[in-house]
Amino acid sequence: MADRTPRVALVTGGSGGIGKAVVERLAADGFAVGMHYAGNQAKADALAAQISDSGGRAVTVAGDVADEGAMETAFDDVEAAFGGVDVAVNTAGIMALSPVADYDLEQFDRIVRTNLRGAFVVSQQAARRVRTGGAIINFSTSVTRSRFPGYGPYVATKAAVEALTLILARELRGKDITVNTVAPGPTATPLFLDGKDEESIGALAQAPPLERLGQPEDIAEAVAFLAGPARWINGQTLFANGGLA
């Protein structure tokens, strides 16, 4: 008889934007989901209740992704609820844009702490905890290739995450765990839209050959692919950007 035990995913930054779409997609695919949030408990609880009301299984966990103790506890709590973790998806991140010459160094320290140290801490816990046959999925950005001015510090953290991910894939040789990065293009989330005028948003929407902004569900589809059937894709960065150069 086939094993009907649901696979389990832990999604950081799971209460908003791309993270929320990832949680909803994995839950729809039959995953039990541990949904991490940093500050908005009400939003996370509402999403967990929505999933439960639809017949799924979800719990919420909190904490700073850059705090190793908090992330150890988050993995502990998901394991206690569902028996283990099969997929770790690290969508948590912040973005603050400014030319390098004008960039505030305190803001630089914050973006490095969340985007790079946070990815490292979550990846470290995932490398120790994810079960055989599982997947670790980090997040980068397509701006590592498009190189828009003003994105320097943000892109620096994400390029480092790509390198970390590729090396971790090789370090987990023999464990049957895939490690990949998703690099979204312009995607209609609050993180992306904040601070941009209509003209800038319109120009970015026209940049891909498909001539639109990505939607969070487009990115969630890529994550679901890497979390599920894509067992022969490993140590790669998947650009989910509608063909943006």
Rank of each mutant, 00 (worst) to 15 (best):
R113L: 12
A66H: 02
N234A: 07
G195K: 06
S140D: 10
E72G: 09
L105R: 15
F192D: 00
M1V: 13
N90R: 02
A188E: 13
D76G: 11
V22N: 03
S142V: 04
G69D: 09
E198D: 07
F82I: 09
V23P: 04
L238A: 02
I137L: 09
A160C: 11
T144W: 00
G13D: 02
S15F: 00
I177W: 00
I201M: 03
T132A: 14
M35F: 05
A159I: 06
V112Q: 14
R25S: 05
Q41S: 11
M35A: 07
T237G: 06
A58P: 11
I136A: 04
A160M: 05
A230N: 07
A49D: 10
I177A: 03
P149Q: 09
A48Q: 12
Q41W: 10
G185D: 02
M35P: 02
D29V: 07
A28C: 08
V85K: 00
L213H: 04
P149K: 12
R113D: 12
V85R: 00
P229F: 03
R128T: 11
A49T: 07
P186M: 13
T189E: 06
I51F: 01
A205E: 05
F31H: 08
G133A: 11
E68W: 05
I111V: 15
Y37K: 02
V59Y: 05
D3M: 13
G185H: 04
S142H: 10
E211M: 02
A92W: 00
G134R: 01
D3E: 13
N115M: 13
T91C: 14
V8S: 08
L10I: 14
T73D: 05
D53Q: 09
A224E: 01
S98L: 14
T114S: 13
A127S: 15
T144D: 15
A207F: 01
I137Y: 00
